[in-house]
Amino acid sequence: MVGTKRRTTGRISGENVVIEVAWMYYHEGLNQKEIADRLGISRATVVNYLQEARERGFIRITLASSAFTTHRAAVELCEKFGLTSAYVVPDEGADVETAFYRVVRGAAEWLPELLEAGDRLGVAWGRTIYELAEISEETRIDDLTVLQLVGSMATPYGFTAEACSTRLAQRLGARCFNLHAPAVLTNAGLAAALRAEPIIHDQLERLETCNKFLFSVGTCLPDSHVVGSGVATVEDLEWYIGQGATAVLCGRFIDAEGRGIPGPLDERMIGIPLEKLVGLDQGILVTPGTDKVEATLAAIRGGYVSHMVTSLGVAQELLEKG
């Protein structure tokens, strides 16, 4: 510590020296050379210890959310689209994957601030939500419940729908209620019978108690996740596009104004109805890429969004096209 005599790592155990270096660097404001001199080690070793501290989760580095929610583009999004709040991360010079993870990390850091004791958070599915759950820091929000809003399905990304809700609940110290049924059945009669089963019936009723909703809206492009996951076939997608489909929200198709499009999938689906996701306390939309601009506009127009996390590039396109 400040004022102590120089020491060597021989007197500090392996894990303790990592913590010691992190403490001196982040809490006492010593630079790498000063730490190296204090501990009798090289500057390169200090760098390695700091990296190890980050990798082992000893260090949590966050930026104040106000840096992103008061950004000019965030304010303009709220003013133009009537949002309660928006969180905009920089993406200048970033490639698609880098921008994706910046938005996901921003959402993971902001989400705990949006939640309160007693909340019932409905969670959609997809790569964005799964990666958000994976990257979230562990925290605890009293009496928080996480609800899986759509049944299970295959996925090209190597995780299941229930993994999104389960992992996020673990990170937030919340109770988790998953939906133990397929997202889509082969025929309407089978789906109706399954919805009538007492266990599934109770689970579906529980979904309608959610007061906040975390999601990323899907596109109607040929490589849409709704096709890759097996919820819809290419023929289904083409049919819905012919009816004006612009986006996919919790496995349901919506048009450019955010209105649900009744179709052949609805009677075969197991999940929360779209109308139950409008008018909640919060609809938290995470949009990581410009490929989802039109879909995002549809979700906003439909009244599903009160809070939004996105990148500057996406925000600018939304403002231009909205």
Score class of each variant (00 low, 15 high):
250 C>K: 03
250 C>H: 09
250 C>L: 04
250 C>M: 15
251 G>R: 00
251 G>E: 13
251 G>I: 01
251 G>S: 14
252 R>I: 01
253 F>L: 12
253 F>M: 07
253 F>P: 11
253 F>S: 02
254 I>F: 04
254 I>H: 05
254 I>L: 09
255 D>Q: 03
255 D>V: 05
255 D>I: 02
256 A>P: 00
256 A>M: 00
256 A>Q: 06
256 A>E: 05
256 A>D: 08
257 E>G: 12
257 E>Q: 06
258 G>L: 00
258 G>Y: 00
258 G>K: 03
259 R>C: 07
259 R>T: 02
259 R>K: 11
260 G>N: 08
260 G>H: 00
260 G>S: 11
260 G>Y: 01
261 I>K: 05
261 I>A: 03
261 I>R: 06
261 I>S: 10
262 P>V: 10
262 P>R: 00
262 P>H: 02
262 P>I: 00
262 P>G: 02
262 P>N: 00
262 P>W: 04
263 G>N: 12
263 G>D: 04
263 G>K: 01
263 G>E: 06
264 P>N: 09
264 P>Y: 00
264 P>D: 00
264 P>R: 13
264 P>T: 05
265 L>V: 13
265 L>D: 13
265 L>K: 12
266 D>F: 08
266 D>K: 08
266 D>S: 03
266 D>M: 14
266 D>I: 03
266 D>L: 15
266 D>W: 10
267 E>V: 10
267 E>N: 08
268 R>T: 03
268 R>C: 10
269 M>V: 01
269 M>N: 06
269 M>D: 03
269 M>G: 07
270 I>Y: 05
270 I>R: 10
270 I>Q: 14
271 G>P: 01
271 G>K: 13
271 G>S: 11
272 I>S: 14
272 I>T: 11
272 I>A: 11
272 I>D: 04
272 I>K: 05
273 P>H: 13
273 P>W: 00
273 P>A: 14
273 P>M: 01
274 L>S: 02
274 L>Q: 03
275 E>D: 14
275 E>I: 00
275 E>N: 04
276 K>D: 09
276 K>N: 13
276 K>R: 14
276 K>P: 04
276 K>T: 08
277 L>A: 04
277 L>V: 07
277 L>R: 09
277 L>Q: 04
277 L>P: 04
278 V>S: 10
278 V>P: 07
278 V>L: 07
278 V>E: 05
278 V>Q: 09
278 V>C: 08
278 V>K: 14
279 G>S: 04
279 G>Q: 13
280 L>N: 12
280 L>T: 07
280 L>Y: 07
280 L>R: 15
281 D>F: 06
281 D>T: 14
282 Q>A: 01
282 Q>S: 10
282 Q>P: 07
282 Q>M: 10
